[in-house]
Amino acid sequence: MIGNVVGDRVREARVQKNMTLHELHQRIQEQSGIVLSQPTLTRIERRQRSVFDFEIIALVRALEVDARWLLGLIELDGTEVVDSQR
């Protein structure tokens, strides 16, 4: 199972910001009004759950990252990701 790239990026951004799952959950709820529970965020980070478009927007806001980066389209420095499978 390949899973989704978003999960890896969510964990990377969260850890980089020294944010717990509880803090991410709270930020998402406060900023976007969406409830993503800690178990749900864990499943996302473990690539066991897909992410809806409105959840991506909430994650981008809470983690203060570029949506293109979260989706695996660019690197942190803004360079385009080269997909070797194309």
Rank of each mutant, 00 (worst) to 15 (best):
H25C: 14
E45K: 12
T40N: 06
L36S: 06
Q16M: 05
A62K: 06
M19S: 02
H22I: 10
L21F: 09
I28C: 03
Q38W: 01
P39F: 07
V65E: 06
T42F: 07
E30S: 10
L63F: 04
V51D: 08
L63D: 04
L63G: 09
R14H: 02
S37M: 07
L63I: 07
I56T: 14
V10G: 10
R11I: 03
D8R: 08
L41F: 10
S37K: 11
R47D: 06
A62Y: 00
L21S: 10
T42H: 13
Q31Y: 02
V10C: 03
V35A: 08
L24S: 10
I57L: 14
L59M: 11
L41W: 01
G33L: 08
L36G: 02
F54T: 15
I56R: 14
S32Q: 13
V35P: 01
V60K: 11
F54I: 12
T42L: 04
L24V: 02
R27C: 06
E55T: 08
E12I: 08
Q16R: 13
L63S: 03
Q26E: 13
R14S: 08
R47S: 14
I44R: 07
R43M: 11
R27I: 03
Q48N: 09
K17R: 15
D8H: 00
R27T: 07
H25V: 02
P39V: 09
R11W: 04
L24F: 10
L41I: 14
L63H: 05
V65W: 06
A67P: 01
D66Y: 00
R68G: 12
R49Q: 15
R47W: 00
L59C: 06
E45C: 02
I44M: 02
V60E: 10
A67S: 11
L21N: 13
R43F: 06
P39N: 03
E55G: 05
E64Y: 05
V10Y: 05
Q16F: 05
V15P: 07
A62L: 07
L41V: 11
R49C: 08
F52R: 13
R49S: 15
E23P: 09
L59W: 09
A13V: 03
T42S: 13
F54C: 11
K17D: 08
I34Y: 11
R11M: 01
E12M: 01
I56H: 06
V15R: 09
R49L: 14
T20Y: 08
L41Q: 05
Q31P: 12
R14V: 07
I57F: 12
D66A: 04
V15H: 09
V35M: 09
R27L: 11
I34N: 00
A58R: 08
I56L: 15
L63K: 05
